[in-house]
Simulated assay, not measured.
Amino acid sequence: MKYSILVMLFIGLLSCKEAKKTEQPVMDVEASTEVEQMDFGKYPQGLVKIFEAHGGLENWKNKKSLAYDIPKPEKTETHTINLYSRMDKVVTPDFSMGFDGEQVWLMDTTNSYQGDPVFYHNLMFYFYAMPFVLADDGIVYGTAEDVLFEGKTYPGISISYNPGVGISYKDEYYIHYDPETFQMAWLGYTVSYRSGEKSDTVKWIRYNDWMKVSDVVLPKSMSWYTYEGRTMKESQNTVSFENVVLSETAKPESFFEKPAQANFVEGKVQE
């Protein structure tokens, strides 16, 4: 991943005009360029079982590209990602943006997008590709305090990043799983992108709606919850995913190139 994750999501996910009001983690660690032999010893045992419950890390590593639609009230966004280079593109009827492998670009001839493309271009990919993106390089694993929801306890794994990994390496993540099925159940995350400082505020996403795509178990939808600490309150916003395609063939690099009418953009970079 070349960038990291994220932002306050509820408002920003409903409307790109509201995206500038949100704080989203932009998770991005360098991805490997080829399928390597799996070394499962570097992952916590619980995370290995989570990978297995979602179709297996080897199966995921054999895929080269991912595409999906996110329906929104005013438009549908189509996201396409090459899984190894992490080049990506987001297309809507009003604007498009992408990452060509080196820079983020935005094409918005009607000035309809008021968010930060550096935040958003790969934002939903890293949420959607959980738990597999947690196998990327530069990650430090630990044990997280359990989450209790509706009388059920969900064990957790903490994720942090080595200094200099991505543009928000001070972000922290907490993946919690069903102790019976080992499917991912919750993702907690903090945001450091705008301040450059670690945050004690953990936001929460529930994962409980799954579908199988090319033998990999991926979210059909995910929901952001209101919370008090690690106590989840109620669903605040749900994002759905449609027309999901996982392919063993990568898109050509030209697919992600900046269009002639687009401009390269820059976001805030941590020092």
Rank of each mutant, 00 (worst) to 15 (best):
residue 56 G to E: 02
residue 217 V to Y: 09
residue 222 M to F: 10
residue 101 G to A: 06
residue 165 V to A: 14
residue 123 L to P: 03
residue 171 D to M: 01
residue 172 E to R: 15
residue 138 G to T: 04
residue 117 P to H: 06
residue 221 S to P: 06
residue 201 T to Y: 07
residue 123 L to K: 13
residue 131 P to S: 06
residue 260 A to D: 15
residue 195 S to E: 06
residue 55 G to Y: 05
residue 60 W to P: 03
residue 15 S to Y: 07
residue 186 W to F: 15
residue 94 D to C: 04
residue 159 I to G: 01
residue 165 V to N: 14
residue 125 F to P: 03
residue 94 D to V: 05
residue 75 K to S: 10
residue 129 A to T: 08
residue 205 I to L: 15
residue 28 D to L: 14
residue 215 D to Q: 15
residue 126 Y to C: 10
residue 262 A to I: 06
residue 197 E to G: 07
residue 62 N to Q: 13
residue 238 T to C: 03
residue 217 V to D: 06
residue 137 D to K: 14
residue 113 Y to M: 04
residue 227 Y to L: 01
residue 54 H to D: 02
residue 24 Q to T: 11
residue 4 S to H: 15
residue 118 V to Y: 02
residue 129 A to W: 01
residue 242 E to H: 10
residue 97 M to Q: 05
residue 203 K to D: 08
residue 221 S to Q: 05
residue 259 P to S: 02
residue 201 T to A: 13
residue 139 I to Q: 08
residue 137 D to L: 09
residue 14 L to M: 13
residue 66 L to D: 02
residue 137 D to H: 11
residue 105 W to P: 02
residue 32 S to D: 15
residue 203 K to P: 01
residue 164 G to D: 02
residue 144 A to T: 00
residue 154 Y to I: 00
residue 76 T to K: 06
residue 176 H to A: 04
residue 164 G to M: 04
residue 211 M to E: 11
residue 107 M to V: 09
residue 223 S to H: 06
residue 83 L to V: 02
residue 15 S to L: 10
residue 13 L to G: 09
residue 15 S to A: 12
residue 136 D to R: 08
residue 61 K to R: 14
residue 33 T to V: 08
residue 191 V to W: 05
residue 95 F to I: 01
residue 109 T to R: 08
residue 31 A to D: 10
residue 21 K to A: 12
residue 171 D to Q: 06
residue 199 S to C: 06
residue 134 L to R: 05
residue 108 D to F: 07
residue 113 Y to R: 04
residue 135 A to G: 07
residue 152 K to N: 07
residue 176 H to Q: 02
residue 150 E to P: 07
